[in-house]
Amino acid sequence: MELDAIFTASVFASAIRLATPYIFAALGETFAQRSGVLNLGVDGMMLMGAFTGFYAVFITQQEGTLSEPLSLLFGVLIALIVGGLMGLAMAFVSVTLKAKQGISGIGVYLFGLGLSELLFQQWVGTPKSVSGFPRITFPYLSDIPVLGQIFFHHNLLVYVAFALVPISAFVLNRTTFGLMIRAVGQNPEAADAMGVSVARVRYATTTIGGMLAGLAGASLSIALINLFQQNLTAGQGFIAVALVYFGGWRPWAVAAGAMLFSFVNALQLQIKVIGLDIPSEFAVMAPYVITIIALVFASKRQEQPTALTKPYERGE
C-alpha cells in the first residue's frame, strides 16, 4: 500500500551515493585479491585518503592558493598518492617480507585509523567543512522525471566510481596486464615460468588497490560529506573486503553487491523517515542480513584465486 512512498526515486539516488566509496574500495581490493594479495587494511587506507585528501583541499581553499576545481583535483591526487603509498607498503610487507596478510592488514588498518585521527587533531582540530565536488546538473538529462533524479544529480566522483566498473572488468579480462594478474593469482609458478614477475604484478595491484582505497576515502571527505572526522569511514573498508568475496572477484558482481548493500541501507533510512513502525535496530541490521542471505541463495561457487594470501616463493 505504501510501496510508492518507500521505493521513491530518491532512494535509488541515495543508494548510488552510498555505494560510491564501496565501489572504489572494493574494485581496488578486487585487483589485489585477484593477484593473490588479501589486503585487510583497506579501511585504514580509506581513512588516510579521506584525511589527506580533505586536508589538501582544506588548506588550498582556505589560503586561496588554488581555484576550487584545482584544489579538488589536488585533493584527489593527494588521496591517490597517500593511498598508493600505503598500498606500496602493504605490498612490501606481504610480497617482499611475506608477512601473514590477514594480520598485517589489520596492522595497516590500525595505523591508518590512528594516524588519520592524530593528524586531524593536530592540524585541523574540530570538524570543518570544505566545498567539495558539486553535484553536476546535466542539461535536459537531469530534468527527465525519475531517471534524471536517480542518475543525473551526482558529483563527479560518483560517475568516476561507476565508470571504473567496466574499466576494471576490461582490464582484468581483456588486457595482457589483466591476464598477468589472474595468472599470478591462480598459478604463480606457471606465471613465473612464463617470465611474469609475480612480485612486480602483486606490487602493482596492491598499489592500485591502495590508490582506489584512498580515492574511496576522498569520495567521502571531499565529495559526499565534505568534511573529516575521526573514523570517518566507520568500518566501510571491511564491508568493501566482504563485497569482493560477495562478488566472486568479478568487478560487475562486486559492484552489484555494493549496490545491493547500499540499496537496502537507503531503504531502511527511507522506511524510518516515512515513519513505518519497525524497531530501528532491525532496520539498521537489514543490509547485513540481506547480504548474507543473498549470498546463500546466489551460491555461485566462484573459485577464489588459488594463491590468495599465499606469498610466492620461487623454487630453488
Binding site: 530518491s10 551515493r17 567521502l220 559526499l224 560529506i225 570517518l232 569511514t233 566501510q236 523517515v273
Partner: peptide, 19 residues
C-alpha cells in the same frame, strides 16, 4: 525522526539527512 543506531557513523548520518 531517524535514529541511525550509532553515535559515530558520519556517512550513514549524512545519508539520513539526504533522505
Amino acid at each position: 525522526i531517524v535514529f541511525i543506531g550509532s553515535f559515530s557513523d558520519v556517512p550513514l548520518a549524512t545519508e539520513a539527512a539526504e533522505t
